[in-house]
C-alpha cells in the first residue's frame, strides 16, 4: 500500500512554508520567542494555552496547527491519527532554564510549570490535547535528522493499521536556533488523495527534500 505525504509545514531560516507556499518570513530573527509570537499573531490563532508552553512545544504546536487547520473536522477518526516526532536536543532548552532555577540554594525556585516541560514528548501531549488525538505517539532522539528511523516506525503504524494517518517530523530548538519539518502521512487506498503540491511518496528522499526546502527553493512559486 502506498503512503503519501499530503501536507507539510517547514520552519527554518526565518521562513515558514506550508504545502509549498511561503506564508511567513522574518529576515532577521532576534529571538525565537518574537518569531513564533509574530507567526501566531499573523495566523490569527486563538489558543491561550499557547503562551504557557515552552519553546519546543510552541514550535511543534505551530507546525501541527498550520498542518491541520484546513482539515475538515472528523476527517480523522478518534485514535486514528498518530504523532511521531524527533529531534537532537530533546528538551535541553527547557532543561537549562530549569537547572538555573535550582543552581543556587539561597535562591531556589524550582517551578512545576517549567519542570513538566523538561520532557521531550510534552510537545506531543500539547498537540494531542489541541487536536484530540488519542492514538499512537512516540518521541525519538537522534544526533542528526534520521529519516530512516521515522520511516520505519511510521510505516509500521500505517501498514499494520495501528493508525490511519500520522503526523511526523523533526522539531529542534536550542536557544535561538530552531528548525522544524512536520508532515502529514496518509495511506493511498483508492487514488483519491489530492494535494496542492503534486504527489509526494512517503520516502527517505521526500523527507530529506522537505528538511532541505530552502536549499532546494521549491517553495518559490
Amino acid at each position: 500500500m502506498e503512503k503519501l505525504i499530503t501536507a507539510y509545514t517547514y520552519i527554518g531560516e526565518g521562513k515558514v512554508v506550508v504545502n509549498k507556499q511561503l506564508i511567513f518570513y522574518q529576515e532577521k530573527i532576534a529571538t525565537f520567542a518574537e518569531f513564533i509570537k509574530a507567526l501566531y499573531k499573523q495566523e490569527q490563532i486563538s489558543y491561550p494555552k499557547f503562551y504557557k508552553m515552552d519553546s519546543l512545544s510552541k514550535l511543534g504546536f505551530m507546525c501541527a496547527e498550520l498542518l491541520l487547520r484546513h482539515e475538515k473536522p472528523g476527517r480523522f477518526k478518534p485514535g486514528s491519527l498518530a504523532v511521531v516526532l524527533a529531534n537532537s536536543s530533546s528538551s535541553l532548552e527547557t532543561d537549562l532554564t530549569y537547572q538555573d532555577s535550582i543552581k543556587n540554594r539561597s535562591a531556589y525556585f524550582p517551578s512545576p510549570s517549567v519542570f513538566v516541560y523538561t520532557l521531550a514528548n510534552i510537545v506531543i501531549g500539547e498537540i494531542c490535547i489541541r487536536h484530540s488525538l488519542k492514538g499512537e505517539n512516540a518521541f525519538l532522539v537522534s544526533e542528526k535528522f534520521n529519516p530512516r528511523q521515522l520511516l520505519d516506525h511510521v510505516s509500521d503504524l500505517l501498514d499494520n493499521n495501528r493508525a490511519g494517518a500520522c503526523i511526523c517530523g523533526w522539531v529542534e530548538i536550542l536557544g535561538n536556533t530552531f528548525k522544524a519539518m512536520v508532515a502529514l502521512v496518509e495511506k493511498e487506498n483508492d487514488g483519491t488523495l489530492k494535494t496542492s503540491f503534486g504527489s509526494m511518496p512517503f520516502t527517505e528522499a521526500s523527507l530529506n527534500e522537505l528538511m532541505n526546502l530552502t536549499e532546494k527553493s521549491i517553495w518559490k512559486n
Binding site: V116, H131, K134, E136, N137
Partner: peptide
C-alpha cells in the same frame, strides 16, 4: 500498543479510557 489521553500534560486521564484502549 501506545495511546494518549489528550487531556492534560501533567495529570492522567480522569476515566482511564485511553490506557484501557
Amino acid at each position: 500498543s501506545v495511546s494518549n489521553d489528550a487531556n492534560h500534560i501533567s495529570g492522567p486521564s480522569r476515566t482511564g479510557e485511553e490506557l484501557s484502549m
